[in-house]
Amino acid sequence: MTDRPIIDIRHAAKSYGPLEVLKDISLQVQKGQIVAIIGPSGSGKSTLLRAINDLDPLTAGEVWLEDTQVNKALPTRQYEAHINSVRQNIGMVFQHFNLFPHLNVRENITLAPKMLKGISNEDADELAVEQLNKVGLLDRIDYYPSQLSGGQKQRVAIARALAMKPKVMLFDEATSALDPELVEEVNLVMKQLAEEHMTMIIVTHEMGFAQDVCDRVLFMDQGVVVEEGPPEVIFKNPANDRTKNFLRKHLKGQN
């Protein structure tokens, strides 16, 4: 495909004081592509992902969502309006779910569509039903987050993000906080999204999942993309020693 990428990161750099967390990273993601980002803890994976919706602003470089620059320089007030409308197109799923505990499942899903898209109560309810059906939790629509298991919480969080009909979904270690037996139900939902050709960028520690689902894998270390390629190459035949070392540690017990 020669189309303009959905996500285009150009020479991204980020520092916290003297600490360079991202060093000149570029990444293009085409519509429907699924990209996994792997790498040791502290290598900058979350920072890169969170730069895409400007949750952690870059110190240099550009992020584009189709033909809109996400992190463009604007006066504060205009920037607020700009970023709020950009973020509606970028779904994000966090390690710790970040569901709203004071709202039930239905309200968690419908809050943003109602407030930001002005849809009616009936349409919002329909939307909640549709999204919950997708993640297999329609029977929990009136539950509060405190009444759900971790896996269920994460599936609701995915439904909440999907209800905004985003163009791309970002996952930051969506299964790392879950008990092992709850990981699979969340992976299944993500696989289903993959089959529907949702564009996804997935930061993960699960090499097996990355191998099964992703079109491309990026291996990051110390703020740089050390190596990237199709999963067959990265996992079976990595070129770089740092990649090999990392995989040796992380593929133990898998496959």
Binding site: N53, L55, E80, S85, R87, Q88, F100, L116
Partner: peptide, 24 residues
Amino acid sequence: GQYEGARTLGLSRMQTLRKIIVPQ
């Protein structure tokens, strides 16, 4: 994370404060 969860959905600071932070 509550603030981040709301802001990534596209809610403004004020909307986040009113609907998410203050009620909790």
